[in-house]
Simulated scan of single mutants.
Amino acid sequence: MKFARLPLLLTLLFATLLLTACGPSNTVPLVAPTVPNNVLPAPNAPRVSVVVFEDKRDSQDLGVRRDGTAFVGSQDASQWVSQALADELRRCGMQVSYALTPDQARSGNPDFIVTGTLDKAWLREVSATELVCNMSASYRVASRSGKLSNRETLNAGQTRNDLPSGDMAKDLMTSCLRDLVQPMASKIQTIIGQK
C-alpha cells in the first residue's frame, strides 16, 4: 500500500520542480513593445529628437523576487523607455531622431526636443503566479525657439496573475511600458500641435 503512492508523490514532486524552473529568471529582457501598422511621416511632419531620459531611480535593479534577489534588466532601462517613446512618436507620424545628449539632439536642428527622467521601473514578485509592475517617467518638450512645456509625470502599473513562465516578467514590463509611452506620445503630439 505504501509503494502504491510513490509514483503519485514522485509525479507531484516533478511537477512542482518543473513549475518552479519555469518562473521568471532574474534577468528581464527589456524589449520594445510591438505595435503593427507603422506610419510613414508626412513630408511636413515636425522633426522631433528624443534624448535618452535621465535615470533618477534609487537603484539600477528592476525589482525584487520573493527570495530577496534582484530583477535586473538586459539593457539600460532609461534607454529602453526613451527608445520606446521615440518609436511611439514615429508611429504617430512624426519625423523622429534619437539622441544620447541634448547637444547631440540640437546638432540635428530639430523642431522639438523631448527630454525626461525615468523615475521608477519596478517589478515585484508577489508569488510564483503573481507579478506587479510600476513605472513612472517625466518629460518636457522644448521648441527650437526655446519655449518649454511644463514638466509632466506619467505613471503606469499592472498586475499579472498567470502560470509561472520565463516570459512573464518580460511580457509584464513590456505591457506596462506601452501603457506609459502611448499616453506620453499622445500628450507630446498635442503640445506640438499635431492632431
Rank of each mutant, 00 (worst) to 15 (best):
R66H: 12
D111P: 03
G68L: 13
D171W: 01
S127D: 13
W122K: 08
A99L: 02
D87L: 10
A156V: 06
N134A: 14
E125Y: 07
R90K: 08
A84Y: 00
G63L: 05
E130I: 10
S175K: 08
A99W: 04
D76R: 10
Q158C: 12
A128W: 11
S165G: 12
T159K: 11
T101Y: 05
A77K: 00
A77Y: 02
L131W: 05
L118E: 02
G68K: 03
G73S: 13
K56N: 14
I113R: 03
G73P: 09
S149E: 05
S165R: 09
D103V: 11
S138H: 05
S165K: 03
D171P: 00
A137Y: 04
D61V: 12
G108H: 07
S175L: 13
R144Y: 06
G166N: 12
K170W: 02
W80E: 07
V126W: 07
V81C: 07
A169E: 08
T129S: 14
V114F: 03
D162S: 07
D103N: 11
E125T: 05
K120F: 11
Y98K: 06
S136A: 15
T153S: 06
G116Q: 03
D67F: 12
G108F: 09
L85W: 00
G63C: 08
K147A: 15
P110L: 01
G63N: 04
Q95Y: 02
L172D: 04
K170M: 15
L85F: 05
A99C: 02
L148A: 12
S78A: 15
I113L: 03
N161E: 14
A99Q: 05
V141A: 03
L85Y: 00
